[in-house]
Design a protein around this nucleic acid. Structure first.
Lengths: 116, 116
DNA sequence: ACCATATTTCTAGAGGTCTCGAATTAATGG
DNA sequence: CCATTAATTCGAGACCTCTAGAAATATGGT
């Protein structure tokens, strides 16, 4: 996952409605949930929900499958994993528990001055 | 980390400038980098950069320490870890490698109909 | 005191996002 | 066919974000 893609996904998850939808869908698993089910669960007006789902689909956080009248929304787990990996690589937090984990794996910077 | 906080942090990371700044700061480690250094590295106009840094500070993705004339920006590694943990919990991707990882740990939903 | 440096605040324009009712499209069943 | 159900598209108002130059603030050096 590159910088741009990561930023796009992060933007979409950075909205409480969309984050709630996504969390719901993740709990629903690979079968996903229909737009109607999401609406019933979260109480978001249909047009608003549709708008948010379209955005999440565009950046491939979810995908939508149409079966006759109902649209099923399914999280793209792989892309979520890619996003998490991107963040983990960034933050160096992947390989340690302690508070100074980042220090341990972040070598960099030639010229720094310490401020006392 | 709760839903709201997570959404706020995700929003801030979901901007290419801010994501670039954050990545740079993470690489800089616990010593951080001054506003001027960030500006030199990324070439963002001072006022624009200041605006983005203020936003990231507000949601505690970074913190700012003032030492005489220079302001040093330091990533809040713990909060980034919390954000990653939040996403990992959400996506069930923490405990498996395979593509069907999510299925394995996401039990839920009474009434689902399969579409063939 | 004066000037250079480091950063923030002010300001304003351009554009994007969010929201949601109303209208629309599409599919199913009677 | 007509009504119903499922979902999307349209339209418009309110609000937020991004951008960046100009002005202001603060500090240090000479």
């Amino acid at each position: 996952m590159d910088h741009e893609q990561a930023a796009d996904s992060l933007t979409e998850l950075g909205n409480t409605h969309r984050l709630a939808v996504f969390r719901f869908l993740v709990r629903a698993g690979h079968e996903g949930a229909s737009v109607g089910e999401i609406q019933k669960e979260l109480g978001i007006p249909a047009s608003t929900l549709s708008h948010h789902l379209a955005r999440m689909t565009k950046v491939r956080l979810i995908r939508q499958e149409k079966h006759s009248r109902t649209t099923i929304c399914i999280p793209e787990f792989q892309n979520l994993e890619r996003l998490i990996d991107f963040l983990k690589e960034e933050c160096c937090a992947g390989d340690a528990e302690g508070k100074d984990a980042a220090l341990a794996c972040c070598r960099f910077r030639g010229h720094r001055v310490r401020f006392a």
